[in-house]
């Protein structure tokens, strides 16, 4: 059954007719062609598809597009301020927090949500928070380092 969905994605209002069973991640990737949000598993374990829904991180494979009707969605494509990277993106770049880049969008979106909740997370808190994000390349060392640095930059207040 086709249903209509209206939501704000990266600041733009989008309205589409989709099959009722369309997942949010499919809506973003297939209908809006926002392919920065990735699919790394089919059991909601890997976290490559994390986006923000109304300011909170969400695995976009766990929600139907229709459930997000009226929501504000931010994907990795909408995080930077024009050409200026979000402090968390910049921290990942400066600290080599990514290699193949596939888990990265989910990691960054998840990290921003962590820092919104906990502005000064310890290494242990960062590692525990990342329980739902799998990376196979970095060994997490530099991701943890990046998030610490990103948190510091966010605290020091670049209000991106």
């Amino acid at each position: 059954m086709s249903v209509s969905v209206v939501m704000t994605v990266n600041g733009e209002v989008v309205a589409k007719h989709v099959e009722d069973r369309t997942l949010l991640v499919e809506f973003l990737r297939e209908h809006l062609r926002l392919t920065g949000t990735h699919v790394g598993c089919d059991t909601s374990q890997c976290g490559a598809c994390v986006v923000h829904a109304n300011g909170k991180s969400l695995k976009s494979c766990t929600a139907l597009a229709v459930q997000m009707d009226g929501a504000e969605i931010t994907t990795i494509e909408g995080l930077a301020n024009g050409d200026v990277l979000h402090p968390m993106q910049e921290a990942f770049r400066q600290n080599h927090g990514l290699q193949c880049g596939f888990c990265t969008p989910g990691m960054v979106m998840s990290a921003v949500d962590l820092v919104n909740e906990n502005p000064d997370p310890s290494e242990t808190e960062i590692r525990e928070w990342l329980e739902g994000n799998i990376c196979r390349c970095t060994g997490y060392h530099n991701i943890v380092k990046s998030i610490s640095a990103g948190a510091k930059a966010m605290r020091e207040g670049d209000p991106t």
């Binding site: 392919t35 920065g36 994907t75 995080l79 990277l85 770049r93 880049g101 596939f102």
Partner: peptide
């Protein structure tokens, strides 16, 4: 040197095979 590939990966502008249609 910080990596030049990171700009695209960090902004969701990489192009993986499944991103192509």
């Amino acid at each position: 040197v910080v990596r030049r590939e990171d700009s695209r990966f960090l902004q969701g502008r990489g192009q993986y095979t499944d991103d192509m249609n």
